[in-house]
Write a protein that binds this DNA or RNA. Structure first.
Length: 153
DNA sequence: GCCAACGTTGGC
DNA sequence: GCCAACGTTGGC
């Protein structure tokens, strides 16, 4: 079992949207970065735990907890010419993009970036690294424990 | 294979 | 809106 941090713009898809979604989970579609795709396709397993992060918004930070509810399968939006995630080079026979399904666990208080940066135990988080833009990053078990038991109790 | 140009992310 | 950082593209 692994831990992850997944970013979403709340204007696009927030923790509240996830909470309202069907119990089986929501497709994490739209990832168009190879590293993030590979994490989903090659490493994520059902039951993996997720820090749900709100990005590109007035208060960026961790907003809730979620879990992987389906392993990776081809991202439907890559085949849809009307989607902004359409990819001309992707075919059903040879899909380029994949997504997992993610299921709501609970909302948390907003654990903002400035607060995260205050904790030495979290200094190694990929999220906090300079210039990090990856929308999906692995989280250390120790970091997960620190965040969920100490900060989000 | 190099690398400049361009596009995107995302905090501020 | 600005801009730093990074990824992708495409000419050579």
């Amino acid at each position: 079992m692994q831990y992850w941090l997944m970013k979403s713009e709340p204007d696009e898809f927030s923790i509240d949207d996830l909470a309202r979604a069907q119990r089986s989970g929501s497709a994490w579609f739209g990832v168009r970065n190879y590293q993030a795709r590979n994490f989903m396709r090659d490493q994520m397993q059902i039951g993996d735990q997720i820090l749900f992060y709100h990005s590109s918004c007035p208060e960026p930070g961790i907003a809730g907890l979620a879990e992987v509810s389906a392993e990776a399968y081809p991202d439907d939006t890559q085949f849809d010419p009307k989607s902004k995630y359409y990819d001309v080079k992707a075919t059903r026979a040879d899909p380029r993009w994949f997504n997992v399904d993610v299921r709501f666990i609970r909302k948390t208080r907003l654990l903002g970036l400035p607060e995260l940066r205050k904790h030495k135990a979290l200094a190694g988080m990929r999220l906090l690294a300079r210039g990090n833009r990856l929308s999906i990053t692995p989280v250390d078990p120790g970091e997960w424990k620190y965040i969920t038991t100490k900060l989000l109790k």
